[in-house]
Each structure stands twice: as structure tokens, then as C-alpha cells.
Nucleic acid binder design. Structure first.
Length: 112
DNA sequence: CTAATGACGACAC
DNA sequence: CGTGTCGCCATTA
């Protein structure tokens, strides 16, 4: 594993790990919170790394969707585990692969 | 060092 | 309102 920019990914990991049960956030929101408002792609990249980083800590990456609430990253999850998990957590869906983000939206620092 | 890619976002048409 | 294109920043080739 490269882990060159631990810092950047580490921030994403921490935020993702803080996403409360039954809530979802967006890549752009996380990116903005990190200070890289335009680094939404990097957030997704970090999550990609996260998948391979599963060393015991479980990061609810399935709670991270794009700003439209679409499970763009479902392809990176086995089967429909992403959609099923969100449903299981009580998240409502507008479409089969689109969550009602406006009703379950969450952002870091909310419960400071 | 340059080019291409990516779990995105915003703007233009 | 749907589709297309550019921009962002980091990583990889």
C-alpha cells in the first residue's frame, strides 16, 4: 500500500466514520469540510482506498453518496450491499439507487 | 515532467 | 429540463 498522503485519506476516514446511523452525506460536503471544496473526487478516491484499508475498522462508506443522493459507488460494493444497508438503517429511497438525501442529509461537525 | 483517470460538482448549451 | 463539457486535486502510468 502506498499511503503517501495518509493525512488526506485519514481526514476522509474520520469523517466517514462519524456519519451517524441512518444518515448520509455527500462527497462534496466532506471535501468542503476538509478544506478542498473542489476535491470531491479525492474523497471518492479515498473511499476507494478505504475499501482496501479494511483492517478491522468498518467505515460506513455506503453512507456516502453524491450530492444527488445517487449510490454512484454501489459498483464498488459487493452486490447491492450498499443499497440494502442504507435501507436497513431506515434510509428512504427516491429510486432504487437514489436515497432521499434531503431527508437524511448530514454534515460533519453537526453534533459538535 | 506530461498525460490520463476517478465512489464529483458546477455551469453552459 | 436533459446532456455535455470543464474544472479540481491527487494518484498512477
Amino acid at each position: 500500500m502506498k499511503m503517501t498522503q495518509n493525512d488526506y485519506y485519514n481526514r476522509v476516514y474520520e469523517i466517514v466514520a462519524e456519519i451517524p446511523y441512518g444518515r448520509v452525506t455527500t462527497y462534496g460536503t466532506i471535501a468542503r469540510y476538509l478544506g478542498v471544496a473542489s476535491g470531491a473526487r479525492m474523497v471518492g478516491y479515498a473511499l476507494n482506498n478505504l475499501a482496501s484499508n479494511s483492517d478491522g475498522t468498518v467505515y460506513p462508506a455506503h453512507r456516502v453518496v453524491n450530492r444527488l443522493g445517487q449510490l454512484t459507488g454501489r459498483a464498488h460494493f459487493p452486490g447491492d450491499s450498499m443499497r440494502e444497508r442504507l435501507e436497513q438503517e431506515g434510509v428512504t429511497f427516491k429510486e432504487e439507487y437514489t436515497v432521499d438525501i434531503e431527508n437524511h442529509f448530514w454534515e460533519p461537525g453537526m453534533g459538535s
